[in-house]
């Protein structure tokens, strides 16, 4: 069953002077943890700010069915935002900061204080919550930023580079928190990052942005097989992969022996792996495993970005030729 989109953007454009930050972004985004991927300067943070109604834009964007252009305040009641940069007010403890954040989001004072404690417990800052936020380490500051974003019970959380500056242990803990949040708190998460490992680990959906436009939108599984059908397989055999490779070559299938007992084979996607089984039986090779060869998120990402760069170069060359 297709999930109902929580965010719909249609031809969203935003520019800062001559810089085109968003150039007609169009996507329907659904899922529990959505990775918003892109290199630095791709327009991820600008898109998040547009969705929060913080900056004006052209085009149409809705979050939870509300227009980002006109209902920004109503969206920000139901959405939490953890920005990339610091946002911690000095001279306040974490619990004061979170309670203040909740009150600004409309919670009554007593409820705000209770939920501030709960959010800080949730973020793992139970023992440090009375200390001034100025004295926190980078990891602790990231946790406070997360707590202040979720203290008012948002239905969607926008997390902008939440693992930036964290050591591996703190990063793993932050990702653990993020991955458990939809189940525990019932909120969807939009995780904006350029760290592909983070997306691979926690996200079920991915949106790839490059140069202010969406280049891919779909599930992470779809992202990893965007080559167009499953045609590459990694095959393990009991012994002597070279013999089986020779049989495959004879049958016209491209292959590469990667170890004495493994090889990579490209088959006709219309036929699929059945061809492999038939050839193995004929050649007397005993197959141990046949796995679809899929991209890592990183490889898929690089391929999509690379293709976008090639297109841009081709267009530029075409324009140059036309001008000449």
């Amino acid at each position: 069953m297709a999930l109902e989109p929580i965010i719909v953007v249609d031809n969203v454009r935003r520019h800062f002077g001559a810089i085109k930050a968003l150039q007609g972004v169009t996507a329907e985004i659904s899922g529990k943890i959505i990775g918003l991927l892109g290199p630095n300067g791709a327009g991820k943070s600008t898109l998040l700010k547009c969705l929060l109604g913080l900056v004006p834009f052209e085009g149409r964007a809705t979050v939870l069915g509300m227009s980002a252009a006109t209902d920004g305040a109503a969206i920000r009641v139901r959405v939490g935002y953890m920005p990339e940069q610091d946002l911690l007010l000095p001279n306040m403890s974490a619990v004061e900061l979170c309670a203040y954040a909740a009150e600004l989001s409309g919670l009554p004072r007593s409820e705000a204080v209770q939920r501030a404690h709960a959010a800080l417990y949730y973020a793992g800052l139970e023992e440090k919550r009375y200390q001034p936020v100025d004295t926190y380490s980078t990891g602790q500051k990231q946790r406070v930023k997360l707590a202040q974003a979720l203290v008012h019970d948002p239905e969607i959380l926008f997390l902008d580079e939440p693992t930036n500056g964290l050591d591996p242990k703190a990063r793993a803990e932050m990702l653990e928190l993020i991955s458990e949040m939809p189940g525990r708190r019932g909120c969807a998460i939009v995780l904006s990052t350029h760290l592909l490992g983070d997306v691979e680990r926690v996200c079920d959906q991915a949106v790839i942005m490059h140069r202010g436009a969406v280049k891919f939108s779909g599930t992470v599984a779809e992202l990893r097989q965007t080559r167009g059908g499953d045609s590459e397989y990694t095959v393990s055999v009991r012994d002597n992969a070279h013999d089986f490779a020779a049989a495959l070559t004879q049958a016209g299938l491209a292959n590469e022996v990667t170890s004495p007992v493994a090889l990579r084979v490209t088959v006709d996607p219309a036929i699929g792996p059945r061809q492999l089984f038939a050839l193995a039986a004929a050649a007397g090779a005993q197959l141990r495993s046949v796995e679809v060869q899929r991209d890592t998120v990183e490889a898929a990402f690089l391929r999509i970005i690379g293709a976008a760069n090639d297109d841009a170069t081709a267009q530029a060359n075409q324009a140059k030729a036309g001008a000449a």
Binding site: E103, G106, L107, R115, G124, D153
Partner: peptide
């Protein structure tokens, strides 16, 4: 881990919100 989840009887807030 220090990132362990503490539920504390978490329930979504459904009460009225203070006027803007």
């Amino acid at each position: 881990s220090t990132a362990a989840i503490y539920d504390l009887g978490y329930k979504r807030y459904v009460g009225n919100r203070v006027a803007a």
